[in-house]
Nucleic acid binder design. Structure first.
Length: 585
RNA sequence: GCCCUGGUAGUCUAGUGGCCUAGGAUGAAGCCCUGUCGAGGCUUCGACCCGGGUUCGAAAUGAUAAUCAAGAAAAUCCCGGCCAGGGCGCCA
């Protein structure tokens, strides 16, 4: 028999129709002589009824077990008065079954196919096909599809061409570790899997395609996090002759469209733009969560004047006014201190404000007039709690940014369904690497410096800003982009500034520099992370992108379902000239 | 590489040295039930990640007036390992 309808389809208007349904047995409610079955498929659930009126079908139904795949034929009927289930799309009807057949039996599932009791991560991943049957996972994956389709429509409608770039590529010069793939026909050589299609999309601009996009898989061999998988998906975008403004408009418009099409949410555009410097000052990071306030106060100069040695020796002192947290217990404060220490702060100074005065074990080191200034600067009131970190620029900001996010969440300072976008702009081009005592590219080495800063490239690198921008949503970086360098001479200058040898550069990506010689247009683009975006849209706790991916890896970058990675067999190793690969002890 | 948290039936969980022959839920098996929808009722089944270590002495017992003697415990405490998750580093 061929199925005539899906399990989410039947309603009052089909009453009286003879239908054939196929699907999974979701629940069995049996009286022996009267059996109710919820039949499930991707589209929904439909109640089946078996009774003595069709003895043969009833006999078969009594053998139904959870997750059996079955087929039935029956008549759509109105439910008895008072037994309708109004909150179900199919809740006003049921199918009175005349025939039933078991298409496949199923063993007892090793996890509950139920959103109310989540199994552990490893069990879920091992039996992912069962985990994916849960309504929430079905919804997440289907929602992901909707987002991808909306993106494709928007990009297509804006004249972007979807072009695929290779997965087997030359190793990229910097950044994350590559996954490599040995080449059989080129013994001893290997391809890399792309960390992003960066160079290819730039070359597509040289090729004159003007506007490109790709929903691209990117691979990085780095340690995992809740929001970091070895394989992830980016919307990769590049356009020719753009201004920064064009990129912002594209990003604003894309997000507005996608949110509207998939969730009916109307975002206000343009998204606010905040300079990197301002973001660091107010929020201590370059990905601020704008759903709440709690801005940081810069108090370095002020507290340098105190008698507290820690303050005197620090290069950056900043203060977070935890409004209304003056009642925090010792335990609460210890937790905050521990959090600050995760980010390498040596400690956390806590000051309670009461009666217009400071209550703290460091208060005695701070003169009355300084106290007054500090209270004024941080806008502190009685019942507030001041949190101070004194260290170098990086540590002070990182620790306080983490505290700020923690407090925002803990004090319920925002609506979790709120979406606050912004662009962080005007990044520095270079970043000082303390360990190696050299300048690194803050974004990547193909980023165009601001025109007016070109003159500082070799003399005052800290002054050079980049035509570079991040899109941030609710404290998460969801896209990063830049105007690229399209001229070989500027590219060479930047590489020189980074201390990259010309011969070395020639070897690694000479093909890009060569392409630039043949009329490369000015170009730029950006790349939103699709997994993170969808996780945020769905409000997945912790931003866990595994919840929006069909087959993610576990924290050790393994797939518990298929057991990869595995040790290749002898024959394969031999063919690939990889006999050196030995089993790790 | 490092830090933190955790590991109890198929699954989720309770458990803070004796009240644990380990409780509950879910599940499975069986029985009952003609309007359920997380069906219900009854019965049954099923677990402390692995390896070390530490340890008090209740009840009961014997001789007794108190007391003394002998003397019993680890899911729980400690160490190591393994596994999982979160994070730091790393990830332009």
């Amino acid at each position: 028999m061929k199925r005539t309808h899906t399990c989410g389809q039947l309603a009052k208007k089909e009453i009286g129709k003879k239908v054939v349904l196929q699907g999974w047995v979701d629940t069995v409610r049996s009286y022996g002589e009267l059996v109710f079955i919820d039949l499930r498929d991707r589209y929904g659930k439909t109640q089946l009824v078996f009774s003595n009126e069709s003895k043969k079908a009833l006999e078969v139904a009594n053998q139904f077990r959870r997750e059996y795949v079955v087929e039935i034929e029956g008549v759509v009927s109105a439910r008895k008065l008072g037994t309708e289930k109004k909150d179900w799309p199919t809740g006003e009807i049921e199918v009175v079954c005349e025939k039933a057949e078991i298409l496949n039996v199923a063993e007892v599932p090793p996890l509950e196919i139920d959103d109310r009791a989540l199994a552990n991560e490893d069990v879920r991943l091992k039996y992912r096909y069962l985990d994916l049957r849960r309504p929430t996972m079905q919804h997440n994956i289907i929602f992901r599809h909707a987002v991808l389709q909306a993106i494709r429509r928007y990009m297509h409608d804006n004249k972007f061409l979807e072009i695929e770039t290779p997965m087997l590529i030359r190793s990229t010069p910097e950044g994350a570790r590559d996954y490599i793939v040995p080449s059989r026909v080129n013994p001893g050589k290997a391809y890399s899997l792309p960390q992003s299609p960066q160079l290819y999309k730039q070359i597509l601009m040289v090729a004159g395609f003007d506007r490109y996009f790709q929903i691209a898989r990117c691979l990085r061999d780095e340690d995992l996090r809740a929001d970091r998988q070895p394989e992830f998906t980016q919307l990769d975008v590049e356009m020719s002759f753009p201004s920064e403004e064009d990129i912002y408009n594209l990003g604003d418009g894309l997000m507005k469209y996608v949110f509207h099409e998939t969730m009916g949410t109307d975002l206000k555009i343009p998204f606010p733009r905040i300079t990197y410097a301002e973001s660091m000052e107010k929020f201590g990071c370059d990905k601020p969560d704008l759903r709440f306030g709690l801005e940081l106060a810069e108090v370095t100069d002020l507290l340098k004047k105190s008698d507290f040695e820690v303050f005197k020796n620090a290069s950056t002192i900043k203060c977070l006014n935890a409004v209304g947290c003056g009642n925090f217990t010792k335990g609460d404060l210890a937790k905050l201190t521990d959090l600050a220490k995760v980010y390498k702060a040596k400690g956390l100074v806590t000051i309670k404000i009461a009666g217009g005065k400071m209550e703290s074990n460091v208060a005695k080191y701070i003169s009355d007039s300084l106290q007054k200034e500090l209270i004024k600067k941080t806008n502190a009131k009685d019942g507030d709690l001041l949190l101070l970190v004194a260290d170098n620029f990086k540590i002070t900001n990182a620790a306080l940014a983490a505290l700020r996010n923690d407090l925002g969440k803990r004090l319920n300072l925002y609506d979790p369904k709120d979406f606050k976008f912004c662009w962080i702009v005007d990044f520095p081009l270079f970043e000082w690497n303390e360990d190696e005592e050299k300048w690194d590219a803050a974004h990547h080495m193909f980023t165009m410096p601001k025109k007016e800063h070109l003159k500082y490239l070799q003399t005052d690198k800290g002054k050079v800003h980049a035509q570079c921008y991040d899109m941030v949503l609710n404290g998460v970086e969801i896209a990063s982009g830049s105007i690229r360098i399209h001229r070989a001479d500027i590219q060479e200058q930047v590489m020189k500034a980074l201390g990259i040898e010309k011969a070395d550069a020639e070897k690694k990506f000479g093909f890009l520099l060569e392409a630039f010689k043949y009329g490369a247009p000015p170009h730029g683009g950006f790349a939103p992370g699709i997994d993170r975006l969808i996780a945020l849209m769905l409000g997945i706790p912790g931003g866990d992108i595994r919840e929006v991916m069909a087959f993610p890896k576990n924290k050790s970058a393994e797939c518990p379902m298929d057991g990869c990675p595995t040790v290749p067999d002898e024959k394969t190793l031999k063919e690939l000239n990889m006999k050196f690969m030995v089993e790790k002890k």
